[in-house]
Amino acid sequence: MAAEGNTIDALSQFILVPVLGRVGESVGFTQSNLHMLIAVGLITALMMWGTAKRALIPGRMQALAESAYEFVHGLVTEQVGEKGKRFFPFVFSLFMFILFGNMLGLFPYAFTYTSHIAVTFTLAAIVFVLITVVALAIHGRKFFGYFFPEGAPVWLAPIIVPVEIVSYLSRPVSLSIRLFANMVAGHVMLKVFASFVVMLGGLAVIGPFVALLPLALNVALVAFEVLVAFLQAYVFAILTCIYLHDAVHLH
């Protein structure tokens, strides 16, 4: 795969590099943190600017802000029910943070902070702690009945309880791995095909024409990645809602 000594280096895009000169270096402020701040700034700007006018007929920004709000609001009320409205701020900020992280990562030179398992697992761990605390606060000791379905024979408890506990503990892991794997896979694919463009482009006379193939594929991939970026933020939010539903209603 080596052309003129250069290999496909698809993973170096995920390396964390300190930014902001010596200050950033001494406190470990990387481009990942920088992009998180940018995302938070953009979300805040969108919501502040979008809701500043409060026009009856919304302008572009207001329509965008309102549709984002209503989308998540519908998600929460539909999944968790009326009781779930108090979790709306949490789910909304989670959804917007992941969505902006995924979308920002698609820009050239940008960094995708959701492509690090440390970030996604932290988000998932917050969700996990929240659903556990909510379930404990609402149901108290009855929460532990969750690990042993009613009506099952008691002698099966030594088998069912560990399996249920492991299944419950696997929620944040599956939540974080899903998002992380999708973002990493997408960016690796983009990088690999982009490398093909460069490598094939230097291939004598025929090169530029052959290089058009991976280039076309990359154009399609970028569109696909926009879809994945939105879909994964949506999946993360809706699974959070489903878990919240389980915590609130405890079936």
């Binding site: 299944s167 696997s170 892991v173 599956s174 791995i177 794997a181």
Partner: peptide, 8 residues
């Protein structure tokens, strides 16, 4: 992902 994470 569900199987993998439960195994992990």
């Amino acid at each position: 992902v569900e199987v993998f994470s439960a195994l992990v």
